[in-house]
Design a binder for these strands. Structure first.
Lengths: 220, 220
DNA sequence: GGTTTTTGTCACCATGTGGTGACATATAGG
DNA sequence: CCTATATGTCACCACATGGTGACAAAAACC
């Protein structure tokens, strides 16, 4: 736990809290520049401009650094930011604005995007924290939606949110490195608005088509 | 270029083609076990049980190894495998079966999944090759679809395939390490059939809802 | 004031990495 | 058969990595 001393004694040369912040800032910079796999003890100490033995002393471990960084507020966002307080006209409408907000929050956080992109390769506490927050968010979202709008008629809501959420997370993470995915631009806000137009259509469609059997294929 | 000698002279101790195959096999094993970032010259030579200088001599470089491996047939699949030869009853039907086939081909290839999962972190020729094949496939898919079914009415087909393709790729890659995503299981064939049921609904819906303005929101 | 703890600096270790040169010998060419 | 090339083995280099112990000085404590 970081003991945040409220007093600021000018410019103290020996300040643990200060160097801890320096280290965590360097973590963010390093993740952005070299990716999550580029964060090592030596590289981190070099980037922070401090001796690596301090990292061991204060955080014990690289995982300890990750854990400390994960508690930093700007790494993720609250569920309320996504769900919102005002009630939408319909469940479909709530989903549509929810996905938009989710994407916006993600695209604001390059470090988080970098971690998502590296989650398959590096299984650090940062990655685990992100996975946990995702699962927790999914559960809370389902609860909130059911409470406000009731269970949807014939729509598999968890599957739908998983698919669209996966697409958004993946595309947002990839957008840091590639300009186009499957022939579709994914860089600018305009590009994303195009994507969300299609997402809207899919959501609307899934809810409207659900009742009527557009395909009379059940079980062969 | 690998000179594949058709003759098999018993068990030759000095056979370049043979050791090249040994190296490429070791690449696959190493990617599966330690991920794409685990492939280094030393580790590769150790895994293959040969001297690392041979890797330099035969492939020049790690990237050369990747390039050679990318040409190996089983790393990806042809566009025809996805599009199929028989004409579906509708464009929506063709898309639905196309996505299913795509997912099936992906889930058959753990090495490809591992590369996809690492594509954000490591930008090796393998990753670039995958990206190229994806873009090329997207283009060919659009051409083939337009030629057979004509341009869809009011559906942004590139955006739709990009979104669903991204979701499938990402979930397939993640399934190698996590069991559940957003509260939805993504391991077994049954899990994927559930996902595809929702994908079907979204596709059907996007095509049926496209014409009628379910939301009278155009530009505020 | 003097003592103890904390913060920071430095040197060092074993190990792993990418990369190169020298050498032996098996194979192929004449 | 003799020679030249191809294949494989070995030793070595500089450097980076994760990790530890020893030590100086600044703060905090009494």
């Amino acid at each position: 736990m970081v003991t945040k001393t409220a007093q600021k004694p000018a410019a103290p040369r020996r300040d643990r809290a200060r160097t801890e912040r320096t280290i965590l800032d360097a973590v963010a910079r390093l993740i952005l520049r070299d990716g999550l796999s580029g964060v090592g003890i030596n590289a981190l100490a070099r980037e922070a401009g401090i001796d690596k033995v301090l990292i061991y002393r204060y955080f014990g471990d690289l995982d300890g650094v990750y854990r400390a960084y994960a508690e930093h507020g700007d790494f993720w966002w609250s569920v309320d930011d996504i769900i919102g307080t005002e009630k939408a006209a319909s469940l479909a409408g709530a989903l549509k604005s929810g996905f938009r907000r989710h994407a916006a929050e993600m695209r604001k956080r390059p470090v988080t995007l970098a971690v998502i992109g590296a989650e398959t390769a590096n299984r650090t506490p940062l990655v685990i924290a992100l996975e946990e927050v995702r699962e927790r968010r999914a559960l809370e979202l389902m609860d909130a939606v059911f409470a406000r709008y009731g269970a949807p008629a014939h729509v598999d809501l968890p599957a739908l949110t998983a698919i669209l959420g996966a697409a958004i997370d993946y595309l947002a993470a990839r957008a840091r490195q590639i300009r186009v995915y499957g022939g579709v631009e994914i860089k600018t806000d305009k590009d994303w608005e195009r994507l969300f137009t299609t997402v809207d259509a899919m959501i609307d469609g899934a809810f409207s088509t659900a009742g009527k059997p557009a395909q009379r294929k059940r079980k062969p």
